[in-house]
Computed example of a mutant assay.
Amino acid sequence: MGPEATTASNLLELRGVNQSYGQSHTLWDIDLDVPEGQCTVVMGRNGVGKTTLMETIMGMRNLDSGSIQFAGEDISRKAIEYRAPAGIGLVPQGRQIFPLLSVEENLQIGLSARKDKARSIPSFIYELFPVLKEMLGRRGGDLSGGQQQQLAIGRALVIDPKLLILDEPTEGIQPNLVADIATIIRRLNQEFGLTVIIVEQKLPFARKVADRYVILDRGRKVSEGAMPELSDAIIQRYLTV
């Protein structure tokens, strides 16, 4: 299927996306299909444009050219404030929770972006992350790294997204909680039908959670396919340090 074709099952489609930062051309002619209800992992060595790609999808960086279609709508030129209410949730690299606000206050921040104007935090957040319910009154900055990551995911889920983007969700997380986060992502996919994009360096984690992979190298997409198709040769060429 050529890059001009569209598929009803894709929740997100990027076509010919170019992006520059100052004098630096960071993304080159990116085509990307994100199938609805699946988990797509974006991989590549450090500095190849993975986070830039996520920030471009979120409207944090402007396109030079190309288009972004989300849920059948062209959002290429929509302001960043439009993306969350449209149904895109972001768990940024480094989590970026508010350290002086309580867990509950951090979660409530997501409510303002909900289309239904709900006033209360959905109960399934506490079912997914029981530790957050136990620590509602505790300040975000007092949580462990793994607990902060759960809070960041919970805050993104509060907006009731159709698409959840997680940028390096296992970074700085102890191994037992990495397994928990993998389980939660699969549940969001399979039980809630949520579409997920993950930027991830850890190959075992990516294999555990993702249906599809996309690899970037120097701002270009160089390989993609179903996760079982990720060969040792591709790993050696684009992912090993």
Rank of each mutant, 00 (worst) to 15 (best):
G89P: 00
G89K: 01
G89H: 03
L90T: 08
V91E: 02
V91C: 09
V91D: 01
V91R: 04
P92Q: 13
P92G: 11
Q93K: 11
Q93R: 12
G94E: 08
R95G: 06
Q96V: 06
Q96S: 11
F98A: 08
P99E: 05
L100Q: 15
L100C: 05
L101S: 05
S102Y: 02
S102R: 09
S102F: 00
E104P: 01
E104C: 01
E104D: 13
N106I: 04
L107G: 03
L107D: 00
Q108V: 03
Q108D: 08
I109E: 01
G110V: 09
G110D: 05
L111P: 01
A113H: 04
D116M: 00
K117N: 14
S120A: 12
I121P: 02
I121W: 01
P122M: 05
P122V: 08
P122W: 03
P122E: 11
F124S: 11
I125L: 10
I125T: 11
I125H: 10
E127V: 03
E127D: 15
L128A: 13
L128P: 01
F129W: 06
F129S: 07
P130E: 13
P130Y: 02
V131R: 11
V131Y: 06
K133F: 04
K133H: 15
E134W: 02
E134S: 08
L136Y: 00
L136T: 12
L136S: 10
L136D: 08
R139I: 05
R139S: 10
R139V: 05
G140L: 09
G140E: 07
G141W: 09
G141E: 10
L143Q: 08
L143R: 10
G145K: 15
Q147R: 13
Q147G: 08
Q147V: 11
Q148W: 06
Q149R: 10
Q150G: 12
Q150A: 14
A156T: 11
L157Q: 08
I159R: 04
D160H: 14
D160P: 00
D160M: 09
L164H: 06
I165K: 04
I165V: 12
I165L: 11
L166A: 04
D167N: 12
P169C: 04
T170C: 09
E171V: 12
G172F: 04
G172P: 07
Q174A: 15
Q174Y: 01
L177K: 10
D180A: 10
D180M: 09
I181G: 02
I181L: 07
I181V: 12
I181D: 00
I181R: 00
I181A: 03
A182D: 12
T183S: 14
I184R: 10
I184N: 04
I184H: 08
I184Q: 10
R186I: 02
R186W: 06
R186C: 04
R186K: 14
R187D: 14
R187N: 13
R187Q: 15
R187E: 14
L188Y: 02
L188T: 04
L188A: 07
N189C: 11
N189M: 11
N189E: 14
N189R: 15
Q190H: 13
Q190R: 15
F192E: 15
F192P: 06
F192K: 15
G193V: 02
G193W: 01
L194A: 06
L194Y: 00
V196N: 02
V196G: 00
I197F: 00
E200K: 08
Q201A: 14
Q201M: 12
L203K: 11
L203A: 07
F205W: 02
A206C: 04
K208V: 09
K208H: 14
K208T: 15
V209W: 02
V209Y: 03
A210V: 05
